[in-house]
Simulated scan of single mutants.
Amino acid sequence: MSDSCCSGTVDLRAMQAKQRRVLMIVLAINLATFVMMLAASIYSGSSSLLSGSLDNLGDALTYLLSIAVIGASGRAKAQVALLKGLLIFGAAVAVAVQIGWRLGHPEVPVFEAIGIAGLANLALNGICLWLLTPYRHGDINLASAWECSRNDVFEGLAVLLAAAGVWWFGAGWPDLVVAGALLLLFVGSAWRVLRWAWRSYRAEP
């Protein structure tokens, strides 16, 4: 009986260590993509890139929180997931402010910079999604991390669409349209994570 308990404890610790390693990798990737996309946004004047960079920063904070509660109680994980949802919603507010500012100060962003940064972001976030996909049906902690990573892949595709639109039309409005679409994506994602977290929180004793 004791051998069985020890085996179960070892298996649990090994699983938690594996989860921690995966989250550390995606944390590092998101910090790197945040810096890269922020620099590209400043250079290009792109709202879609800025929204993507803010999303990556929020995701990095999300993964950091996810690492902190590995092995914690279900209630603690639900509380952290609530905070994750609020972080995603905060990114949506920041994007909305940026779009409003760009509407008052229109300019044509540099589509080459948008395209290069978008491709790099899509490739790196594809790696993150691949790493997190095995945990998408796990507890609220890993499931919410997977939700963030899936958003990043959609974001990468949208940024490439923005670059193509700016190049084709020679105008800045496609970039703003994509930024607006990302804003709606963030709001929807925040709602789903907050709903899951609240249900998990209420289900815990």
Rank of each mutant, 00 (worst) to 15 (best):
V159H: 02
I67T: 00
S144D: 13
T133H: 14
L87H: 05
S66R: 06
C6F: 14
S7T: 03
N56H: 04
I29H: 00
R192I: 02
I116A: 14
V108D: 02
L31H: 08
W196R: 11
A113E: 02
R21H: 09
C5M: 12
L124Q: 12
R195G: 08
A72R: 15
N151Q: 09
F169M: 14
Q98N: 11
G52D: 04
G172F: 00
A76T: 13
S47F: 07
V193F: 08
G188M: 02
T33V: 03
E147L: 15
D139Q: 11
A17F: 02
K77R: 14
E155G: 07
E155S: 10
G126L: 01
G115K: 15
S47G: 05
V95T: 14
T33P: 00
V26Y: 04
F34I: 06
D139H: 06
N141G: 09
A203Q: 15
L119F: 08
L61W: 07
S2N: 10
A68C: 00
S73C: 14
A197C: 12
G90Y: 11
L23S: 00
A81W: 06
N141H: 13
L23K: 02
G118H: 07
N141M: 15
L38V: 10
W196A: 08
G45N: 02
A39H: 06
H105W: 04
V153T: 04
G118P: 07
A17L: 01
A123I: 11
V187Q: 01
G85C: 05
G165D: 05
V159I: 13
L27Y: 13
G90A: 13
A113P: 05
A14R: 10
M1N: 04
G100W: 01
L160A: 04
V177Y: 08
L61T: 08
R199W: 09
L103M: 10
V187W: 03
L27A: 08
A78I: 10
L132I: 08
W173V: 07
W191D: 03
N56R: 07
I140Q: 15
V193K: 00
A72M: 15
M36G: 04
V93F: 15
S66D: 13
D11S: 04
V35E: 10
A91I: 06
I25N: 12
P205L: 05
C128Y: 04
